[in-house]
């Protein structure tokens, strides 16, 4: 069977062991039978045991416990066009863009950051430049306006602050 379930089981099992070790270090509270370490310990044991069981099950071809992922993709496949190759570029940009968003949130500001992140994301997925730009800028400004004015969420204006946005 697929490697992923086996691997996940092993990782979760190891994580369980880690959780137990961390839980042992939590303090004991005087006057209480059980301290803050109890629940993490129980959860750790659970992860350790069931992670192992899951990994072992995954290796057994007799255990058809896992619902195949194919069912998920089925409606897409029925559309007639077969899936294209993975969009690694867009994926890398998505992760990098989100990391950049977190780092530059206050300095660059919401509108600037989001416009760039969304525009490049769309271009990498094959949307034409002008359309990607238009959608990115328009939706960002609209969301910004709604959240600032109606929902009173303090989104940062950043570099574009002088424009009165």
């Amino acid at each position: 069977m697929s490697k992923a379930p086996f691997l996940a089981g092993v990782i979760l099992s190891l994580a369980g062991a880690g959780v137990i070790m961390e839980a042992m270090r939590l303090p004991v509270i005087p006057g209480q039978t059980y301290g803050p370490g109890l629940f993490p310990t129980v959860i750790g044991i659970g992860l350790l045991v069931f992670g192992a069981v899951y990994a072992l099950n995954a290796r057994r071809p007799t255990e058809p416990a896992i619902v195949p992922e194919a069912e998920w993709a089925a409606p897409d496949a029925e559309e007639g066009s077969a899936p294209e190759r993975p969009f690694y570029g867009a994926l890398a940009w998505l992760i990098a863009g989100l990391a950049g968003t977190i780092l530059l949130w206050e300095t660059a500001g919401f509108v600037l950051l989001m416009s760039v992140v969304l525009m490049v994301f769309m271009i990498l997925l094959g949307v034409r430049l002008w359309l990607a730009g238009l959608v990115a800028v328009a939706s960002t400004i609209m969301v910004y306006a709604i959240f600032i004015r109606i929902l009173t969420v303090p989104l940062p204006s950043g570099l574009l602050a002088p424009l009165g946005l």
């Binding site: 897409d76 294209e84 190759r85 969009f87 867009a90």
Partner: peptide, 14 residues
């Protein structure tokens, strides 16, 4: 998932 599956440009649903 859709990016890695290569379905990111296809119709979302029927």
């Amino acid at each position: 998932d859709s990016l890695l599956n290569g379905t990111a440009r296809q119709r979302f649903a029927k």
